[in-house]
């Protein structure tokens, strides 16, 4: 039994690499899109705020599984054919983006109005106000839920196996199909996911401590 698992390890490693790759892409894209849309939600003109609000509320109201199937099987109806990998990444990114929007809104919204006014008063442009005054302060608030979201993304990436993509989850299932050793392999899988997410949590806590400054 152990022999069979060891034999399967390179295959599992490939699946694991794909899991990390999907997670990384989703986290990266959703961070960029979420921060931009979040800034639009907080500072944008009213129509933009509404658009982001509707986007965020809609996406967050849909089960992620439905979102994945919708992008993969639904979008071809309007002529958008995405290969399964990119369909999965797109769906997970949409989902995560909506969350990042909310984290950003919460974090930026917690900064008192006077900070922006003081930044304006010394002549900072909007972009400088954000990068030098608002974001550094909002960062500490943004980080914990966001890292939480990153661990969610790693876990959620297992759903891509439903589109037949060989990520860690799918690799485990396939090895089980060949070896009939379900329990040890699921335990191994659980341990790998746990190890990744535990590492992320630790990193998060260290980061948070580093960005602690005392508020008046």
């Amino acid at each position: 039994m152990l022999g069979q698992i060891i034999y399967a390890l390179p295959f599992l490693a490939e699946g694991f690499a794909l899991t990390l790759w999907v997670s990384f892409l989703v986290v990266l894209f959703s961070l960029m899109a979420g921060v931009i849309l979040g800034v639009g939600l907080v500072y944008g003109p009213v129509p933009l705020r509404w658009a982001v609000r509707i986007f965020s509320d809609t996406i967050r109201g849909i089960p992620i599984l439905v979102l994945i199937f919708f992008v993969y099987y639904g979008l071809p109806a309007i002529g958008l054919h995405l290969p399964s990998f990119w369909a999965a990444v797109t769906a997970l990114t949409l989902f995560k983006t909506a969350q990042v929007v909310e984290y950003l809104r919460g974090a930026v919204g917690s900064i008192p109005r006077g900070q922006t006014e003081a930044a304006m008063a010394i002549g900072l442009t909007f972009r400088q106000q954000l990068t030098s005054v608002i974001f550094p302060q909002a960062f500490r608030r943004f980080l914990p839920p966001w890292i939480n979201g990153v661990t969610d993304a790693v876990k959620g990436s297992a759903l891509v196996s439903l589109l037949g993509i060989t990520d860690l989850m799918q690799a485990i299932n396939q090895v089980i199909g060949r070896t009939y050793e379900a329990m040890p392999l699921y335990i191994l899988g659980a341990l790998i996911y746990f190890a990744v997410n535990y590492t992320l949590s630790l990193a998060s806590r260290r980061l948070e401590r580093r960005f602690t400054f005392i508020r008046e």
Binding site: Q115, A119, V133, Q137, I214, E216
Partner: peptide, 8 residues
């Protein structure tokens, strides 16, 4: 400002 508004 009345409330200082220093960057903390």
């Amino acid at each position: 400002f009345q409330s200082f508004n220093l960057f903390p």
